[in-house]
Design a protein around this nucleic acid. Structure first.
Lengths: 260, 260
DNA sequence: CGGTTCGTTGAGGCCCATCAATCTATGTGG
DNA sequence: CCACATAGATTGATGGGCCTCAACGAACCG
């Protein structure tokens, strides 16, 4: 197991090839970033570092000196209670920030573990804070990212509190499809490395019940699964099942002229 | 029902008595605020405005021009799905910010309704954004607030996904006790206006089951309820039942010297 | 005094958990 | 190349936590 502090020491903050690493990330596509602010962030990011599957990027209780961004692979944020039960609070795919909280909280309340082999880059916290003090757009971007995460967590709470197993699974699959593939009317397919146990931990269920419910969805023709491949033949129908409305993801970034 | 836009028009932004309104709020006690930044915020806040119980402060889909802070009374953030089920994602007590998301999102993904008569003050969004651009501490404070809300929502998700009804109720009561009264070893009591239906909506349960579980907690001597009064005779024991660890609330604000 | 809100109680049943076993795929070392 | 180990998916039997439906009681109020 890799603790956060051991982990980040092996990053090199070379300014040699700083470009293009952030392109496509949530961070990069913020509507609040001006061109020079994007460039400043690009120069703050470290080179990418490979991480093995199943290792902890950060652990509960850590104070971490860097924010990490997933460049390749999947990870998840999760909490553990005294009784040993896990709850995954976020699935992290390429472009997502791993530990936004580390920016201003000196104690993390969750752990983050890779679900596959992954590559991550690091942004030193103090550097981001300094950039945020200098560039308004950068400060706003990180606040915006935190607010968007809030919305996603509210949605998760609603799903866990008020939806059946079938609805929860359908909703999660619609969300993953949207985040990975964007808007699709009909078929959508993506590489999904999640085990049924991880589905269970994300949805507040047991693996047994996840299994049976997925079988039911398969039988209904709503999903098709191959080895790590997830196919949603009819996204529209699956959205109805899960009560999925993509707006909460705030993936579109329309510029309302009179916003400021 | 009062929509957000109708609502905020009736605020007056007089600079006559700007002091003391924010004292005790989460916002005010941020460790990131310097003295002059506190003063700048004080001057940005409107006079307080009374709101009737059961009225919506903001509604899903709104774009709202102000942030509201509860000065008196209780409210809740909640989401509704197509099938009509409610899920409360946050209980708001005096000092809490109602709609932090409105700062940078142009579409709210939840509604906020007062649970009692209440008084709120408003902070115009554009003014906060301007202050955030000018004062680093103010920008950081709002980011910090968003991050702390993140942690609370993760905790809620864990509770909904992995805890029994008994544990969820115990946990919520411990949280409310901590937020309202601070740290208590033994007895803690507070005015609790929540109906059992609202408990149910906050905990992902039905009113019937909340009722039976509360009765069990009463029988076990863990809670005593009078008219709107909630008494926790043994907070320590109740914390064990709910698996409650107050650190996630981030209410203490220790200054780690080398944080920046 | 009738209406409304909220709390309480009972009967019945389903969704999902629990426990445990089997099956399959993958990988690893001899 | 096979024996074996391991992770993950699947299946069955059983039970319990929580939901549903429905009714009633209690407190408050115009």
């Amino acid at each position: 197991m890799i603790t956060g502090s051991q982990f980040e020491t092996s990053f090199t903050h070379s300014a040699t090839r700083p470009h293009f690493r952030l392109i496509g990330t949530r961070l990069w596509s913020s509507r609040f970033l001006a061109r020079d602010e994007q460039r400043a962030l690009e120069e703050a990011v470290s080179s990418s570092r490979p991480v093995r599957a199943g290792s902890d990027l950060v652990s509960e209780g850590d104070g971490t000196d860097s924010l990490f961004i997933i460049v390749e692979g999947w990870a998840c944020r999760y909490t553990t209670t005294t009784d040993g039960a896990h709850q995954i609070s976020a699935l992290l795919v390429p472009g997502d920030i791993v530990n936004l909280d580390a920016l201003l909280l000196d104690r993390l309340d969750y752990s983050v573990r890779t679900l596959t082999e992954a590559k991550v880059v690091a942004l030193p916290r103090t550097l981001i804070l300094a950039l945020g003090a200098q560039y308004t757009g950068i400060a706003r971007t990180f606040t915006w990212l935190a607010l968007v995460e809030n919305v996603a967590l509210s949605k998760l709470a609603h799903s866990l509190g008020r939806h059946s197993a079938r609805e929860r699974i359908a909703h999660l699959l619609c969300e993953l499809s949207m985040r990975l593939n964007g808007e699709h009317e009909n078929e959508s397919r993506f590489d999904c490395p999640l085990t049924q146990e991880q589905f269970a931990d994300a949805l507040g269920l047991t693996t047994v019940h996840v299994n049976r419910t997925i079988q039911q969805l398969r039988k209904d023709g709503l999903i098709v699964t191959g080895s790590r491949m997830m196919i949603l033949p009819d996204v529209g129908e699956l959205r109805k099942v899960g009560g999925f409305d993509p707006r909460y993801l705030h993936m579109d970034q329309p510029i309302s002229p009179k916003f400021f």
